[in-house]
Design a binder for these strands. Structure first.
Length: 117
DNA sequence: AGCATGACGAACA
DNA sequence: GTGTTCGCCATGC
């Protein structure tokens, strides 16, 4: 169990990330960079990934819908079960081949376009 | 306090 | 188009 100590400052960033991820509709995916950019920290895509790491304790955060800009399921190994990510995506109608989202450009969901600040 | 790492991304060769 | 390097910034040792 990872004891996540959320400092007030980080809490804000983490919650922003979670809020965006929660808005990802089923059958769609987005990228760490897109979320980071939407939050105004486009160069901190790594922090988004770190936020997802904490999201493991956040059941309501569909982290499986977040992949890298290449459409690869880079974070699959961080789930409880590595296959869980691919499985969930397929269950939502997203085709996954060789750990990569098929038609990534089509199912891609851009928070900057779908959401408003 | 300093060094190494990381669910990434963009730039460069 | 592929491979390598740097930047980003929080976390862990």
């Amino acid at each position: 169990m990872a004891t996540i100590k959320l400092s007030e400052k980080n809490k804000d960033f983490f919650e922003n990330v979670y809020a965006v991820v929660r808005e990802i509709p089923e059958g769609r995916v987005t990228s760490y960079g897109a979320i980071a950019a939407f939050l105004g920290a486009k160069r901190s895509s790594r922090m988004v990934g770190w936020a997802m790491h904490g999201a493991g304790s956040m059941p309501e955060v569909p982290a499986h819908r977040v992949v890298n800009r290449n459409g690869y399921l880079t974070g699959k190994g961080h789930f409880n079960d590595p296959d869980e990510m691919e499985l969930k995506l397929k269950a939502e109608g997203i085709q996954v081949t060789d750990d990569r989202v098929v038609d990534f450009n089509v199912v891609f969901w851009d928070p900057a376009t779908a959401l408003s600040l």
